[in-house]
Design a protein around this nucleic acid. Structure first.
Lengths: 198, 198, 198, 198
DNA sequence: CACTAATCGAGACGGTACGTCCGGTCTTGCC
DNA sequence: GGCAAGACCGGACGTACCGTCTCGATTAGTG
């Protein structure tokens, strides 16, 4: 996840300042929190980080790339505790996403999506992150299907889209609030509200 | 939906050039089609439309407002023929949205979402458009529920989100293609693949 | 000599701020005096002039163009009083150039020459200025030749080069000082020290 | 004239790569010839020479110093064959300078002059070179004066300036071409076109 | 043979200016 | 009043170049 190269042992030349990455990200994070994406000026990030602009651009080829990684960091690892109870696991997952999306905010997500759409090279980082999440969710669903908690025919990919997609839809398009209850209702709708027999 | 004022009859001074609105929108549309979203600079639109920038800004208070209307035009009216067959009607609806979203393109949608998130006044126009669609879909679902084609307990709002949300999710986030097949599978997933009723 | 267009009467659009030209040149002049050419930052000039950088670049396409005009202004018009006495007239002329060159300074002249050599479009302004001077000098010499104060065969162009060239040579290359005495000796050498025949 | 230290015998540590000097100068010369003065960035020179930038800077303290030496090399030694015929000797000398100046080019000369004006330490090298030439020319003139080919009162310094100065003036300021004919006419003007009595 | 000292390649770094781009406002004179 | 033309402000962007620095790897002479 480090910007560019994974710092092989047999590196030549002056090594990169290991603190610079962190200082830049910190500065960007802070400015992002206060000013938002639009107002996030690269010059200011560099200055704030005590770093030359060139140093920043050596690591991230554009403002968008930087922010992408920043958000990826913010989102953190996929922490996915499977309890074996499908409904609980899914609800936990979707609620987690809900909380994080809400924290990041509509403007930032939208701006990032725009950056991604404009420059496909930006997409790489962010897509990787999303894929990790999707993968986790799909794993949950497959396990459930194998246990018989889900119909044989169900398509895990689609189900995940229908769990996660609405969150982005609300956040970016309709503007409706993202609440934990909404997350619950999404899961309910996918699994069926009626108690799973019991 | 006309830009600003509805051209009251008792107006003083030179009347607005009635063709300007159209020419501007046409120019924007064309630039979008030929040169992509990047080319959609206000100066270029005005020049292309043979119109002064002031004329444009007199009608739309910002680039975002213009683009919103542009998209609204592109999307066109909600044409919703109910055949009474729930699956067919929903599939037609979702496919329609799929096609239109694909046509508009990810970059534009994302930038619009960003504009909406930043300026609530922009939101009004676009939300109105989306609400019309949602309303149509919800009407279909309610009718189906009344007919008994859908369980009593089902929540139409959520269902719609789960039909439409994934489209935006794919378009903006994952970058997966928006195909008619995908639309079909979404509907199938919501209604259950297995024959309904029977 | 005004930057671009000579402000025709039937101009459309907002007229250029007439004060801006002057304010920019003033700011540039002052910064040039204190910091030298190298340190003359366009941003600072604009800021100092209370003008957006775009306003500056609308008038002069590059820093070099601006400074060229600035120097041209500094040099001012060719004031050439002919007394009819060749030696006096030439001495006055060469001394005038000496003083001005000394005032402008080697660094600036050299930087300007470099700018001219790099971008031929820069050359236009400065060459015009120099041509005016050369023309004046040549006129003096022709008149003298017609009066018989100068041999029939003498080549005015070459003579001028030999009067002015050494000034630049000293200033830029050898670094020897430019004194009024030197100017006098140049003229003497060209006309012959020994009394002008009589 | 070798860059820095004269490679004392009792040196410790790894000796300098003897080829590096030459390779660097070659690379610079070539870049200058092929891509023009603009291409003469230190990074490019080093890369082109297959040399680290540090290696270059260990030899020359700045780009200007390097270029100075480059030019000195280009100019080569002052080869001054005195035939005893003043007009011939001077013409040969001035033509030689003309050719070399033309080869070096206005941009380079101007930038060098600028560097000299800014940093007096740069001046040392270049001035030395020029002094050698001046000295040679002055020697010619003195000899001629002693032979009686030149008036007793004539000032050799001034005469040299009037022979060489115009070349720089044309090259840097007026932009007029430097031709052999021009060189001849300069000498003619200084010595008098009409045969020197006799 | 170890030790020390200098050079070399590679490349990161600070600093700083440049010229460009775009959104949105303002100012003319003409209709 | 609308309109065309176009100047203006403000501000960010990404690029370029210079000269310095920090590594690890060589390559001598020295003890």
């Amino acid at each position: 996840m480090t910007p560019e190269l994974t710092e092989q042992p047999g590196r030549r030349g002056r090594p990169r300042d290991p603190g610079a990455d962190r200082r830049i990200l910190d500065a960007a994070r802070q400015l992002l929190a206060t000013d938002g994406y639009e107002a996030l000026a690269v010059d200011r990030v560099a200055e704030h980080a005590g770093v030359a602009k060139t140093t920043l651009y050596r690591r991230w080829p554009s403002k968008a790339h930087l922010v992408i990684e920043l958000v990826a960091d913010l989102q953190g690892q996929v922490r996915l505790e499977e309890t074996g109870d499908l409904r609980n696991d899914l609800t936990a997952l979707v609620r987690g996403i809900t909380v994080r999306l809400h924290a990041v905010g509509a403007a930032l997500v939208a701006d990032l999506a725009a950056a991604v759409a404009r420059d496909s090279s930006v997409a790489l980082g962010i897509r990787e992150l999303f894929k990790a999440w999707r993968g986790a969710a799909i794993t949950i669903l497959w396990a459930a299907r194998d246990r018989g908690d889900l119909p044989r025919a169900s398509n895990a990919e689609i189900l995940v889209d229908q769990l996660v997609g609405p969150l982005y839809y609300r956040l970016l398009i309709t503007g409706d609030p993202l609440t934990p209850e909404y997350a619950t209702r999404l899961v309910d709708s996918v699994l069926g509200t009626h108690e799973p027999t019991s």
